[in-house]
Design a protein around this nucleic acid. Structure first.
Length: 275
DNA sequence: AAACAACGCAACCGCAACCTA
DNA sequence: GTAGGTTGCGGTTGCGTTGTT
C-alpha cells in the first residue's frame, strides 16, 4: 500500500521548463496570487505538470526579486554561522537571506561552501601545527643553558658519543645545549600541559565578518570546547544583521546542535568538535 | 578535435506537518 | 478524533556545461 500520488504521473511532463510554461505559470500567479491550490493549478492553466513542480518552479525561479549566484562574503558568513547553529534547515537559513531560496543555498553549500570551508580548515590546521612548533621552539630557547660538561666514560658507553642522545637527556632535565638553537626536539615538551593548552587555545576561531568558521583540530572534544569557551576569549562573534547572539559560546552551539538538530554536514565534524 | 571527468544547478522524490471536513 | 488532501522541506538525482587529457 503506497500513498496516493500527488498527480496523474503518466500524463505529467518532467524535466526542464520551457519559456512558454514559465510564462503561463507566471501570468496566472501574478493575476491570482499564490494563495492558489497548487494541485489543481496545472489543469487550470493547461500545463501538464505536477502541482508540486509548479510550486517549486515558482518559488525557486519565477518569483520576483530572486537573486541567483554571486553569494557575498557576508552571505557566506551568515550561512556558515546558521548552519553551525541549526544544521541543514535551509528554509530557515533562506529566510535570513532576502532573495535567496532554500534550494539555492542548499546547492551553494553542497557544491562550493562546504569545500571552501574544508579547504580553509585544512589550511588553518597546518598553520596551527606550524605556530605550535614555533611556540615550542621559543620555550626551548628560553630554557636555562646547561653547560656541556665533559662526560665520563664516553668511550665506554656509545650513548654518550651520540650528540642527539645528550641533548635528549638535557631536555628531560629542563635544559638545552649551547649549540642547539636549530635542533629543538619535541621530547619533554609535548607533555607539558601549559604548551598543550596553548595548542588548543588556538583551535577555535570563528570569523563572522569576512568568512566562515573554523576549528582547526578535528579531534577536539566537548570538554575542551567547554574549557575554552568559558574564557570568552575564543567565543563566537555576532552575525551581522541578525541581531541575536545565538553563538554566545561554542559549547552552547555544539550542545544545541547535537541535542536538537542531529542532522549535520558530512565530513565537517570539526565544526562540532568531533561530537 | 574528441573523449572523458568534474562541477553546478534545476528538478524530482518521499516524508512529515498541517489543514479541513 | 480521524482520514484524506495539501503544503513545505530536505535529500538526492539527472542533465547540461565547463575543464582536462
Amino acid at each position: 500500500m503506497g500513498r496516493a500520488p500527488c498527480c496523474d504521473k503518466p500524463n505529467v511532463k518532467k524535466g526542464s521548463w520551457s519559456p512558454e510554461e514559465d510564462a503561463k505559470l507566471k501570468y496566472y500567479i501574478q493575476k491570482h496570487g499564490t494563495g492558489t491550490n497548487w494541485i489543481t493549478l496545472p489543469q487550470k492553466i493547461g500545463l501538464k505538470r505536477c502541482g508540486k513542480s509548479c510550486r517549486l518552479r515558482w518559488l525557486n525561479y519565477l518569483r520576483p526579486n530572486l537573486k541567483h549566484g554571486g553569494f557575498s562574503e557576508e552571505e557566506d558568513s551568515i550561512i556558515c554561522s546558521l548552519y553551525i547553529s541549526i544544521g541543514s534547515r535551509w528554509s530557515v537559513i533562506a529566510a535570513q537571506l532576502p532573495g535567496r531560496t532554500d534550494n539555492d543555498i542548499k546547492n551553494y553549500w553542497n557544491t562550493r561552501l562546504k569545500k571552501k570551508l574544508l579547504w580553509k580548515h585544512h589550511k588553518e590546521q597546518q598553520q596551527a601545527l606550524l605556530s605550535t612548533h614555533h611556540e615550542q621552539l621559543y620555550k626551548w630557547q628560553q630554557m636555562p643553558m646547561l653547560p656541556l660538561q665533559p662526560l665520563p666514560y664516553t668511550n665506554q658507553n656509545p650513548i654518550f658519543n651520540n650528540q642527539d642522545s645528550i641533548e635528549n637527556l638535557l631536555s628531560r632535565h629542563g635544559g638545552r645545549s649551547y649549540d642547539d638553537n636549530y635542533h629543538a626536539t619535541h621530547d619533554g615538551l609535548l607533555n607539558n600541559h601549559e604548551f598543550s593548552n596553548g595548542i588548543y587555545q588556538e583551535q577555535v576561531h570563528i570569523v563572522s565578518s569576512s568568512a566562515c568558521i573554523s576549528n582547526s583540530n578535528s579531534n577536539i572534544n566537548n570538554n575542551e570546547v567547554q574549557q575554552y569557551s568559558q574564557t570568552d576569549q575564543y567565543g563566537f562573534d555576532m552575525v551581522q544583521g541578525q541581531g541575536s547572539t545565538f553563538t554566545s559560546s561554542i559549547k552552547e552551539v555544539v550542545s544545541t546542535t547535537t541535542n536538537n538538530y542531529p542532522q549535520r554536514c558530512d565530513g565537517l565534524g570539526f565544526f562540532y568538535g568531533g561530537v
